[in-house]
């Protein structure tokens, strides 16, 4: 990662935090006074948001002034890079996983838990696998056994699944 890219990401983070702080302050603007409580429901979120905005502004100022920031020592990305053995990282699979998960959640109320989870595991498993016949067979087995098994198991425990 070049330091330029780090700075851009830090700046994005700082701006997002300022936005979160501003949203909180806006959200508590009309909080009524609490009858028995000298502090009130708005005060602590308000001051947390002020602290967020102040710190994020400092971070932003440092970036603009050209001070480098240090990255986190343990990151999903750095730790994976550490044992890089020549394969390529494929960010589009992350997007695919996210979209599949969202589709799974959206389908749950209509398809029911068993059908939705089997379908989800089939699609995502197939996407992520290397699609050799053996891998596909395992994916199908895992999806059907896993989906039906989990569904039956948790229903037996009377957990309310859609």
């Amino acid at each position: 990662m070049t330091s330029d890219r780090t700075a851009r990401r830090d700046a994005t983070f700082a701006i997002a935090m300022i936005a979160a702080g501003a949203l909180t302050i806006w959200g508590v603007r009309n909080q009524p006074r609490a009858p028995f409580d000298p502090v009130g429901a708005a005060a602590i979120p308000f001051w947390t948001a002020i602290a967020v905005i102040a710190l994020a502004s400092i971070l932003l100022a440092r970036i603009i002034l050209g001070h480098a920031t240090r990255g986190g020592a343990v990151s999903l990305f750095t730790s994976a890079d550490a044992i890089d053995d020549g394969y390529t990282v494929e960010p589009r699979y992350s997007l695919a996983a996210a979209l599949c998960t969202a589709a799974f959640a959206a389908a749950l109320p209509f398809a029911g838990f068993r059908l939705a989870s089997i379908g989800f595991m089939l699609v995502l498993g197939w996407l992520l696998s290397d699609r050799t016949p053996r891998a596909v067979a395992i994916v199908v087995a895992v999806a059907i056994l896993g989906g039906a098994g989990l569904d039956a198991g948790f229903r037996a425990l009377m957990i309310d699944l859609p």
Partner: peptide, 28 residues
């Protein structure tokens, strides 16, 4: 680890996320 300011911001962001809902103290 790494940047202290980013760690603090992450912690404060976690705090912000915890606030929505019923305020346990006032019931509001």
């Amino acid at each position: 680890q790494g940047s202290v300011i980013k760690g603090l911001l992450a912690g404060l962001f976690g705090m912000l996320v915890s606030y929505p809902g019923i305020d346990e103290t006032s019931g509001q």
